[in-house]
Design a protein around this nucleic acid. Structure first.
Ligand code: ZN
Ligand code: ZN
Ligand code: ZN
Ligand code: ZN
Lengths: 163, 163
DNA sequence: GCTTGACTCTGGAGTTACTACAGGGTTTCC
DNA sequence: GGAAACCCTGTAGTAACTCCAGAGTCAAGC
C-alpha cells in the first residue's frame, strides 16, 4: 500500500509517517518505480504500535526502547515493565504538579470578583507584589511538560476502520 | 543594576532575561557606555511579575495580556478575571486528560508482572494488537501540552532572597 | 601597565514531536 | 491528453527557552 492508505488505516498524518521514517522509528520503506513509498502489514503493525505508545504520551526515546524489545523477543522484558513504571511516574508527578497549580490559581482567582478597575484588581495586585516566592517556573523533576500545547492539533479526517 | 544581579534577585537565568527583552515582555534596557544593560526597580517588578505568571504556567500570550492591563490601570479588569478562569480551565482539563492516561497506563501495566521473555510480555503484546483504538495522540481540546518536558530544567543557583 | 578573572555582549543553533508549506513529479481516470 | 488526486524532497515554523562561541568590558592585583 501507499503512504496515504497507511495514513488512513492508522489515523496518522502522512507528514508524520515520513517524519517517523526520518527519525528512524519506521524503517525506510521500499519504493516503486515512480519513487513512491510502499508499505506492508509489518509496517502497519509497527506504526500502529508507535501510535498507541504516542497516544499514551510516551516520548520517542521511550518508544525506541519498546521497539527494540519488540524486535528482540528472546530478551527479558524487565526493562519494559520498568520503563512503563517510570512513565506512569512521569504522568503521576505531572498530575500532582498541576493539581497544586490549580489550587494556587484558584486562590489567586478568589482575589477579585467583579470587574473593578485594573489598578484595584486583586489578581493583578497579587501577581505584582510577590504572593508566590519567585521560584523556577513549574519545573518538573522528571521531564514533564508545561500546561499548554502549541498548535499540535490534527483532527483525523474520519477514520475508515469499518465504515 | 546589571543583568546578573537582576537575574539573582528574581531567580531568572540571564539568557532568559535577554530572551524576554527580545520577545518584548521586558522593555529594552538602557545601556552603560560599555554597552551593558542597566535595570532599576521598575524592571525588577515587571520581571518578577512575569516570573510569577510563568510559575503559574501561563503562556507568553497570556502574560502579555496581563501586562497590558498592568500598564493601563484605569481599565476594567473583567478580562483579567476571564483570562484567569480560562487558564484554570486549561489546567483542569489537562489534569483530567492525564488522569485518564494514568488509568490506561495502569491497566496496561497490569498485563505483565515478572520478567518474562519479551515475546510473551503482556505489555508489548497489548501495545502490539490494538487494545486502544488508535486515536490521535493525546490531543488536548484547549492547547494543553504533553507529559514530558524537553530539557527545560534550570536549577536556580541558590537564591539569596534574605540569607 | 598588564594580566587575570568575572562579567557581559551578539548571533546562531539545539530542544520535542510534529505541521505546513513550495515547487515539483506520478498515477489515474475520463 | 489533460485534470485531479496523489506523492516526492527540502525547508521553516511552533513554545519557551538553553547553550555555545567568540569577543568586549570592568575591577582588582602585582
Ligand atoms: Zn515518560
Ligand atoms: Zn480583577
Ligand atoms: Zn492557559
Ligand atoms: Zn513484561
Amino acid at each position: 500500500m501507499k503512504i496515504g492508505q497507511l495514513a488512513q488505516q492508522t489515523g496518522t498524518p502522512v507528514d508524520t509517517i515520513r517524519y517517523y521514517e526520518r527519525e528512524g522509528l519506521l524503517p525506510r520503506a521500499a519504493r516503486t518505480e515512480g519513487n513512491y513509498r510502499i508499505y506492508d502489514a509489518v509496517h502497519l503493525e509497527r506504526l500502529a504500535f508507535i501510535r498507541r505508545c504516542r497516544s499514551l504520551d510516551m516520548t520517542q526515546d521511550e518508544i525506541r526502547v519498546l521497539l527494540r524489545f519488540r524486535d528482540t523477543p528472546s530478551e527479558s522484558c524487565e526493562d519494559v515493565n520498568a520503563l512503563l513504571d517510570a512513565h506512569i511516574g512521569h504522568v503521576a508527578e505531572r498530575i500532582r504538579e498541576l493539581q497544586q497549580l490549580e489550587t494556587q490559581l484558584q486562590v489567586l482567582r478568589a482575589c477579585c470578583e467583579e470587574g473593578r478597575q485594573a489598578a484595584e484588581c486583586g489578581i493583578l495586585n497579587e501577581l505584582s507584589h510577590g504572593g508566590a516566592e519567585l521560584t523556577t517556573p513549574a519545573a518538573s523533576e522528571s521531564h514533564l511538560a508545561a500546561t499548554h500545547a502549541g498548535g499540535r492539533q490534527h483532527v483525523p479526517p474520519r477514520q475508515g476502520g469499518g465504515a
